[in-house]
């Protein structure tokens, strides 16, 4: 249980018990294109025999109906349901509305499939306790993504951006007979970066990526860029920096740090990007 009243957040899994503003004080559909504005959906009441009921407001979008996205309210019987937000979604899908669509696989925070926006912050549904959510819990897909159906975002673009940082070892030296050796401290330099599970909570939570996501690579791809830049076995640092050094690709990062605040694995994309900027500066002088 990591609900907190503290002003100082110490790890990304802490959830504020109450917030002054649940959302920015702007109109609900501010700047939203007509086809993307969210309308009020329907209510799905709990079974008659349920005693411990919790409401979930869930974003719905059905591509087969020529209608806008809507916000449905589901009442979940907590006595019949597991403890995590993902359990609630599965309960709804199996007991109430089988058309509710979402991605999930490992249910233990290692696959990154069930990343979504829970109570205004991006997180994995499988590692967020229902008890930690507000009432009603607000469940949206990852922010600022094209939506395929309900909570399933189209990640094509962010994966293409990941591909652009060429996330593999590049070496011109002939491959050795056995493994490529690394000093222990060089191996330690990868800690905190190689663990990324590509859930894209960070990129989806980055305001700079919201406004310029077509050109700014975003925190997830840049963290991976740093993971290969800092790998002592890689020989392509110069080429990698050439491709990154761009007013939009790299420097559109304004160190807002929503990325570090939201990473469900406790990694630090903001720090990785600062390391890249420092490396570019080093190369210049």
């Amino acid at each position: 249980m990591v609900k907190t009243d503290a002003l100082i957040i110490e790890s990304s899994d802490q959830v504020p018990r109450r917030t002054l503003f649940k959302r920015f004080p702007i109109p609900r559909n501010f700047g939203v294109s007509p086809g993307s504005s969210v309308e009020r959906g329907r209510n799905w009441p709990a079974p008659a025999n349920a005693t411990r009921i919790k409401a979930f407001d869930i974003y719905r979008y059905d591509p087969d109906q020529k209608k806008n996205p809507r916000l449905d309210t589901f009442e979940v019987d907590l006595d019949d349901c597991g403890p995590m937000v993902l359990d609630a979604l599965i309960w709804i899908k199996s007991r109430v509305d089988p058309t509710l669509t979402f991605r999930r696989s490992c249910r233990e925070g290692v696959c990154g499939s069930c990343a979504m926006n829970i109570d205004g912050g991006n997180w994995l549904a499988c590692t967020r306790f229902i008890e930690e959510t507000q009432t009603p819990a607000r469940i949206y897909p990852l922010a600022n993504m094209r939506i395929i159906k309900d909570l399933v975002p189209d990640l094509t673009h962010v994966f293409a951006q990941y591909e652009m940082v060429e996330p593999w070892l590049q070496s011109k030296t002939a491959a050795p007979e056995r493994e490529r050796l690394q000093a222990p401290e060089d191996r330690a330099a990868l800690d905190g970066y190689y663990e990324c599970i590509l859930c894209f909570c960070c990129t989806s939570g980055c305001p700079s990526h919201w406004w310029n996501g077509d050109r700014f690579l975003g925190p997830a791809a840049l963290l991976q860029a740093w993971r290969w830049l800092t790998d002592s076995r890689d020989e392509a640092a110069g080429d990698r920096l050439d491709k990154l050094e761009d007013p939009f690709r790299l420097y559109r990062c304004h160190t807002i740090l929503n990325c570090t605040r939201t990473c469900p694995k406790g990694l630090n994309p903001g720090k990785a990007i600062a390391e890249i900027k420092k490396l570019v500066a080093k190369r210049h002088g």
Binding site: Y140, P141, N144, I147, P207, R261
Partner: peptide, 25 residues
């Protein structure tokens, strides 16, 4: 898709204001 473009999920309309983003703006 041959029909309408996919909707964009909400961003600033739903994202929780945090010290990080509030101080940045």
């Amino acid at each position: 898709s041959s029909t309408r473009p996919r909707p964009l999920s909400p961003n600033i309309q739903i994202y929780r204001p945090q010290l990080t983003s509030v101080l940045s703006i």
